[in-house]
Simulated scan of single mutants.
Amino acid sequence: MRLLVVGGCGLVGAMVLPHLVAAHEIRVLDLAAPAGPVPGVRYHAGDLHDVDLVASLAEGVDSLVYLAMGPKRDWGSPATARAHLDVAVPGMYATLTGVHRAGVTHLVYTSSMSVYRYPLDGDHPPPDQEPPADERIGRYPDETTPPDAGDFYGLAKRLGEEVCRTATVGYGMDAVCLRLCFPTAEDEWPRRGTAMQRAIATSARDVAAAIDAALARRGRGFDVYAISGDASERAMSLAKAKRELGWAPRDPTA
Rank of each mutant, 00 (worst) to 15 (best):
L4W: 03
H106P: 00
L57I: 05
L53A: 11
F182G: 09
L178F: 12
L11F: 15
V169N: 10
Y116P: 00
P183T: 04
G36C: 03
M1C: 03
S114H: 08
L159D: 01
R191W: 05
D187A: 12
T253L: 08
M15Q: 09
R192L: 07
L31Y: 06
S111I: 07
A216H: 11
T97A: 14
L17R: 13
Y109Q: 08
F152Q: 05
M113L: 06
S203R: 12
T95F: 00
A185P: 11
Y118S: 01
E25V: 04
H124N: 15
A185H: 03
A81Y: 03
V104R: 10
G46T: 02
T97F: 01
L85E: 10
I227K: 13
G91F: 01
L155V: 03
P141V: 15
I227H: 05
A32D: 12
A133Y: 10
A167D: 12
V6S: 07
R42C: 03
L155G: 02
V87K: 09
T194Q: 04
Y116I: 02
R218E: 14
A231M: 03
V99W: 02
R101H: 15
M1I: 07
A149T: 02
L3S: 11
R191D: 06
C9R: 00
A14F: 01
H100Y: 06
E143S: 03
L178N: 09
L4S: 00
V21Q: 14
Y116V: 10
H100E: 14
T166G: 11
H106T: 07
P34K: 10
Y93Q: 13
P146L: 14
H106R: 13
R117H: 11
R198F: 01
V5T: 06
D251V: 01
P90Y: 02
A201S: 15
K240W: 11
L11R: 14
G10K: 13
R158I: 14
A214I: 06
R191Y: 09
P252N: 12
P249K: 15
P126R: 15
A149E: 13
C177R: 04
P252Q: 10
A94R: 00
Y66P: 01
T184W: 10
E59A: 09
V207S: 11
V38R: 04
G193Y: 11
I227P: 07
P131C: 08
E130N: 14
A209N: 04
T105M: 09
S111M: 06
R217M: 10
V5E: 01
P131D: 02
V38I: 12
A68I: 00
